[in-house]
Design a protein around this nucleic acid. Sequence first.
DNA 1: AGAGCTATATATAAGAC
DNA 2: TGTCTTATATATAGCTC
Lengths: 204, 204
Amino acid sequence: MIRKKVKLAYITNGSSRKATYKKRKKGLMKKMSELSTYCGIDTCAIMYSPDESQTEFWPSLLGVEQVLSKFKMILEMEKTKNMMNQERFLSQRTIKLLDEKFSNVDKSMDAFTMTPLYPQGASSSSSSSMVALPPMTMVMPKAMPKIGTEENVQLDVNNIDPMKRQQWIMKLMNNSNNSSPQTYVGGNKMMFQFDHNINPNNVH
Amino acid sequence: MIRKKVKLAYITNGSSRKATYKKRKKGLMKKMSELSTYCGIDTCAIMYSPDESQTEFWPSLLGVEQVLSKFKMILEMEKTKNMMNQERFLSQRTIKLLDEKFSNVDKSMDAFTMTPLYPQGASSSSSSSMVALPPMTMVMPKAMPKIGTEENVQLDVNNIDPMKRQQWIMKLMNNSNNSSPQTYVGGNKMMFQFDHNINPNNVH
DNA sequence: AGAGCTATATATAAGAC
DNA sequence: TGTCTTATATATAGCTC
């Protein structure tokens, strides 16, 4: 969008597509780091491009782990909160049954259990949370080139049944009813690389 | 950075911070959708801000699931590829032992097993992959306001021991040696909301 | 809080090397 | 392929309503 306003479409030329990818990836990382700083929001990125034939973790592999850990914690808090809500309506006996269900949720979410480095006493900004937890932003890969045409999901999960709510979260994190495909042969090269072209501390 | 060049620092004023968050979030999503279109890369986002007291999935919850599914597939391919490599050096007996270990990796990665909608025959651009798979980009939340100061991890995982490599992936996806904290009380409100302010199809 | 409106700061496509 | 340069397209802070 500079010398020439480019049509928003897939860049068929390989070398220019790769160049664009690098430039825009850099720009995206900078925007993320700025959002982090301005709003006190945690961000991290895992980027994969077949053109690069490597997976990049930003700002580092550790950073990704920490963010995942934090997201896991938020889910934990959600779970606990839901249980607390349940207490107001259900008997102790019923709660025990729910407890078992939640244990299954725990199990299915184990893959998100990174080394728990938190809580570390960070203040929770303007959140209504009863537990101090740093804010968080999560950005992940999208499904297909055709973007944004999916049905626009907008659900206030606080207004629906707490169990349904849990199921949504579960569905996001794990599809336990599903046997994963195991028969793929070969594969892309995979590297862990930090993009040292970007140093958010020197931005501006 | 317009009317006035703002110092890159946390915005203490709550309302202006929230306004900045919304504006920049919108910009970030647009950049992501552009990167998707230009480079044929999948992107999605999960955003959480205590100021918003809701978690947003972009472009949709389904989109996030699909991307996670794809990432899972790439990991699967990595696993298979590693096994193929092992075959060249190890006996059948040894391979069986490795097989058991990999099964454990599978288990720990189950939380990333979304409904597998792929492969769907997409061409793999310039990747050296032996399996057709759409390219992918993953962007996730970072750990703390202090950004980019972690040690810059740069490892060519292809050049290190395949088992170590698996361990790295495992470490990213799951810390099975770790019992997750279960004692958090209360929690932030959590909503699933699609940001309908952004329609990538109308961009430009 | 949200919806425009500008003036500027940034991001970046093409070129040049 | 990478780096630099530069002309423009975008992004967005601060205001107003």
